[in-house]
């Protein structure tokens, strides 16, 4: 297993380096943007240049860039994201709930679609040429290539305005003031608001998994080892399971990468459904040049993608016995 440990150590080092590179890029790109967080306030006369200088000094923004950079790295390493410049609240207090909102919507949706679409895709691949196959491919490809907000709007028109089954906007009734986690995310009211965005997300991502799984099974279908399984007397379904198991690698890789990417939120969906997620928060923060907020948000996103890459590598090594042997040595 030392091979495997070496493999993990190597991937961890690469991941750490990648994180460093990405946070560095964020830092300098933000500083390169013209203007400052207070531009609007100063031009509208709400803040005098002297006051602005004062606030700047308070945040350490008057120091030379390299000093700012070092402090920034130190703070990130200790997970201290600081205070938002414009909202005067700890960054984490702003981002935390929004990230939670995004994840509570997207993670279950992604898991659902990964499981269901992969299963359907494998079945479709096994029954190549059948109506089930052609229909499923056509439908999911259509859903994948239609921009997500169009699908969302159509579903809104159908289920919200016409049928009135679900509310059209927000995460809960306007009057609701939930206390505690349980109340926030496990009420009937929340579920009611949750259904439609959830469905749209599931549909949107279904095509990717379906096609990946289908192609994997089609590729494996004629292979000699399945013939031997068949000769052993395995039933059709048992054979399909073996074919599926053998074509699982791309699906798992894609799932892990997608999971990393959903930390960015699905901004179009969040706008259409009035979902208070991290995507919207990020766009707003960039517009306002709220440095600490943007830095923290981008750091989390980059970290998520990098960590998930690592997870997918490890998963592949776990799922495919041939990966460890080669991946560990070289």
């Amino acid at each position: 297993m030392s091979d495997f440990r070496r493999f993990i150590a190597k991937r961890l080092t690469v991941s750490a380096l990648l994180t460093l590179v990405s946070v560095t890029i964020i830092f300098f790109v933000l500083r390169l943007l013209p203007g400052s967080p207070f531009e609007t306030l100063i031009t509208t006369g709400n803040l005098s240049p002297e006051q602005a200088e004062e606030v700047f000094a308070l945040y350490g923004l008057d120091k030379p860039l390299w000093q700012q950079y070092l402090v920034y790295l130190k703070n990130l390493l200790t997970f201290q994201f600081g205070y938002s410049i414009l909202q005067s609240r700890p960054v984490w207090a702003i981002l935390g709930p929004k990230l939670a909102n995004t994840l509570i919507l997207l993670v279950p949706a992604l898991v659902t679609t990964a499981v269901v679409s992969t299963a359907v895709g494998m079945y479709a691949g096994w029954n190549r040429g059948s109506t089930a196959e052609t229909t499923s491919i056509a439908v999911t490809t259509f859903l994948r290539s239609t921009p997500v907000f169009i699908t969302a709007i159509f579903l809104l028109i159908a289920f919200s305005y016409t049928l009135g089954w679900v509310p059209a906007f927000g995460m809960r009734r306007v009057t609701a003031t939930p206390n505690g986690l349980l109340d926030t995310y496990l009420s009937i009211d929340f579920l009611h608001h949750y259904l439609l965005p959830f469905t749209v997300t599931v549909l949107y991502y279904s095509g990717d998994f379906l096609l990946l799984a289908r192609n994997g099974v089609v590729e494996k279908k004629g292979s000699e080892f399945l013939k031997l399984h068949r000769a052993k007397g395995l039933t059709e379904n048992e054979q399909l399971v073996r074919a599926g198991r053998n074509s699982l690698l791309p699906v798992v890789t894609y799932f892990a990468l997608r999971l990393g990417m959903i930390f960015q939120g699905l901004i179009l969906l969040e706008v259409v459904f009035g979902w208070d997620g991290i995507g919207r928060a990020l766009v707003l923060a960039i517009e306002q040049q709220d440095y600490p907020l943007v830095q923290a948000a981008v750091f989390i996103m980059a970290l998520a993608v990098i960590v998930m890459n690592l997870v997918s590598d490890v998963l592949c090594a776990y799922l495919d016995p041939t990966v460890t042997a080669n991946g560990g040595a070289a």
Partner: peptide, 16 residues
């Protein structure tokens, strides 16, 4: 009736 397949290289399930 058991069967010994032609290409032993590919006849075994690689992930089992």
């Amino acid at each position: 009736i058991a069967y010994i397949p032609q290409s032993a290289m590919d006849s075994l399930d690689p992930v089992m």
